[in-house]
Amino acid sequence: MPVGLVALSHSPLIGLNQPEDAVVRKVDGAVERAREFIADFDPEVVVLFAPDHYNGFFYEKMPPFCLATGAVAIGDFGSASGDIKVDVDTAKTLGARVLELGIDLTISARMQVDHGFVQPLEVLFDGIDRVPTVPIFVNGVAAPLGPVSRIRQFGHAVGTAAAELDKRVLFVASGGLSHDPPVPVLEGAPPKVAEALIVGHPPSPEQRKRGEDRVLQAGRDYAAGSTTMTPINPSWDNEFLDVMASGDLGVVDAWSNDWFEAEAGGSSHEVRTWIAAYAALAASGHYEMTSRFYEPIPEWIAGFAVTTAR
C-alpha cells in the first residue's frame, strides 16, 4: 500500500500574534496545498509525530519517544481539548512490531498532548476527531537528548511496521524549524519551577494564562527585535529541508545536539519529528518531496515550513 507524508511547523502564537497579511496568505496557500495532497492520497490512518512542551511529559518519566493507544488533548493556547480519535488496533500493531524490530518504545494508554499534536490535526483535518490517528511523542525539549541517529532508526522502524499494514498510511510531522521560544529548563531552575518540570502538576487556569501571556509577549518582543533569543536561521532551515528532500537521511547521523542549539535555537530539536517521519517514509523506498514552503516568521518565533512527499 502507498505511504505519504506531510510535515509542518506549529506555533502557539498562530492566530494570537499575526504577521502581516501577505505572510499569512502564503502560509494559508501552503497549508491548502497540503490539504489537497491529503485529499488526493486519501489516508486510512495518520501516524502523527509531535513533541510536547511540558504539558504531557515531565522529568519524573521522560521517554525519548512514546506511542499512544489513547490520547487526550489539554486545550492549551485555544487549541481543541478532548479525546484524539486514536486507531487503537493499528497503534497496538505498530507498537508491538517496532518493539520486535529492536526499538525500546514506550507505550501510553492515555497520553496527554498539547498544541504540538492538535494544531496539525486542526489545520489539516479540521479537528482532532476526524481521522484515525496513531499519536507518537518525540522528545525535542527535555535534555538530555539521545543521538539524532537513534531518531532516524526509530522512524525507520515505524515505517517498516507501517509498510506491513494493509492501509494507506500518512506520516505527519509537527514542529520546528529553527526557533528559540521561552521554554523552561530544568538545569538551574528555581525549586518551584523544577518541581513543576519534574512532577507536572496541572496548572490552574490562572497559572496557564500567565504562562501563555509570557509566550505571547515573547513573540511580540521577538518580532520587534528586543530579545536575547536565538534568531531564526533561514540558511540552517533550508539546508535541513534540502537533506529531507534528498532522501539521503544517513547524513543526520553526524549531527550533534549542541550544533542544533548553536545554529537554530533550543527548540530546533523539534525537527526530530521531521527526521522520524521522513525516515518512516523512506522505509518503503525512494520518495519525492512534492511541495516545499518556507518562511521565517518572527511573530510566531519560528522558521515555518510545510512539505509534502510520497
Rank of each mutant, 00 (worst) to 15 (best):
H201A: 11
G146M: 13
A96D: 10
S226N: 02
Y59D: 02
L121R: 01
G78H: 11
G29A: 13
I84P: 03
D242M: 07
I103C: 05
G250N: 14
A302P: 02
R33V: 02
F293P: 04
G29C: 04
V138G: 07
Q112H: 12
G155L: 11
T228E: 14
D83H: 10
M289I: 07
I232D: 00
G188S: 13
V271M: 12
L281K: 07
L281C: 09
R168C: 10
N233S: 14
A218C: 08
M229P: 03
P203M: 04
P203G: 07
H269I: 10
G127T: 11
L5Y: 07
G159C: 11
A280G: 11
R214I: 14
P191D: 15
E270T: 10
P203Y: 06
V72M: 02
I275M: 13
G75L: 00
P64W: 10
A245Q: 09
A163M: 09
R168T: 11
S235H: 08
T227C: 07
H10A: 11
P234I: 05
R97I: 05
R208K: 08
R130M: 14
S178G: 00
A189Q: 08
A34R: 07
P144C: 12
E100S: 12
D76I: 05
Y222M: 02
G95K: 04
A302T: 15
S9Y: 05
K192I: 11
L145H: 15
P296C: 05
D89T: 05
P43K: 08
G127R: 07
G266S: 14
V98H: 11
E32V: 04
K192Q: 13
P234G: 02
V118D: 03
A305W: 08
D242Y: 06
D76F: 07
E122F: 03
Y278F: 15
